[in-house]
Design a protein around this nucleic acid. Structure first.
Lengths: 227, 227
DNA sequence: ACTACGCTAATTGTCGACAATGTTGTTGTT
DNA sequence: AACAACAACATTGTCGACAATTAGCGTAGT
């Protein structure tokens, strides 16, 4: 059982490359949510055969970006309040577990690196006040490392491979930027401290709160935009 | 977002059929754990082309029964104490969450049905004392229904599609029968009561304990057999 | 006018062959 | 004898075409 998961291996095959492209296109909304996916059309658009394309579609289904019906075709997922709620319910629990395990299993060197990453985020934040891209990338990077620190291959796979892009899709398409930036950094700091103190229970709690807060923030923004 | 997940749809395509066959073969150990998988060989064995076979392999990778390396091939997963620990860590948390959600979202009719199922298990147990097959099927069926009761599509997908067969593989190949049968039924009953009382917190706790006990039971059996 | 049926067209599933990559056995050198 | 480079082989990745199924549409019937 390898801890190194598929997303980290550089794209080797044509299927890998087209997967990354379509993934990005869906997350960014270039391929509209809910729209039907035509295999021949995409094959022509990316200039390859349907074989690697279908391989890519299978993986897109795996990370919940598309839904396939046998003999009927594939559609890009539709975002919904219900779906977002389900997703964040899961993240709360799973990343909480990841934190607890990280507190137990992360090497001291990894913790040191993570602290360095946070410091870097803080200085970046000061300079790039309000620019959401850095915040998002930084936030995801922090979560990413904690998850990897759990050393649980299945957990890593679920969070980093299967749910990661869906989370990004919700964030991007709902236009997450908001004033939650600085508070999120503080929360990250607190989580890291709990991990460094090897206090798994606290780390779990703090992470669950952190994600719950993030969820409420998105929900608020969602009702502002209109249901 | 459909709550009905892929495993429940009847096998339509050739890829679906061969998927079920290979799945069963791997879970049962007919295809040895850790052994290399040859696409041409399997294609010949099941008398179909490599295209649907590769589709099936992609799904087998999704439920962690095989591991693929680009341009190198696929291997059946190797069972390990570490892997079992990781798997049950995850199940503890996830099925705990499923229980909590089930206590919130299950319809009264579903709860009534589930109670009927448990009664049926009890009478079956009295008749078929010690036969592990019924116990396993019944246990999985109970868990299955609770998970479906959570009404969280992502959670259902992960537990029923992605981890389900791996759990079965560990159980089957480690020869789970043991004297835990009657106790498991009592625990199921307690969990159901908590759900019926809409006490999500207790249901969560009881399910986590139930799975932890199951894990310890397997671990014990594992060291008896020899590491 | 609306529904039911059948047909056409497009899409998905499957196939066999070719190209590219890994693997293995051999050979030559140090 | 051990190691490295090479070559032959096997396996995986990709392609284009065909078969099977479905969706859309027009027509006929009530």
């Amino acid at each position: 059982m390898s801890v190194q998961h598929p997303s980290l291996r550089s794209p080797i095959t044509a299927a890998d490359r087209v997967l990354l492209e379509i993934q990005r296109a869906i997350v960014q909304g270039d391929i509209a949510a809910g729209s039907k996916i035509s295999e021949p059309e995409l094959a022509k658009r990316f200039d390859l055969s349907r074989a690697p394309l279908r391989e890519a579609l299978a993986r897109l289904e795996r990370c919940h970006l598309i839904e396939r019906i046998p003999n009927a075709g594939a559609r890009v997922v539709k975002l919904s309040t219900q779906g977002l709620l389900s997703l964040y319910q899961l993240r709360e629990t799973l990343e909480g577990l990841a934190c607890r395990l990280a507190a137990e299993h992360m090497a001291d060197s990894e913790i040191t690196e993570l602290r360095g990453l946070l410091d870097q985020h803080l200085s970046t934040q000061r300079v790039r006040e309000g620019e959401s891209y850095y915040q998002e990338a930084g936030d995801l990077d922090f979560h990413y490392r904690v998850i990897l620190g759990s050393k649980n291959a299945y957990l890593i796979n679920i969070l980093c491979d299967e749910l990661y892009y869906l989370v990004r899709m919700y964030r991007v398409q709902l236009g997450m930027n908001g004033p939650r930036v600085s508070r999120a950094f503080d929360e990250h700091k607190a989580i890291l401290n709990a991990i460094a103190n090897r206090d798994g229970e606290l780390a779990d709690l703090l992470m669950r709160r952190h994600i719950a807060a993030s969820r409420r923030n998105i929900e608020k923004q969602l009702e502002q935009t209109g249901t």
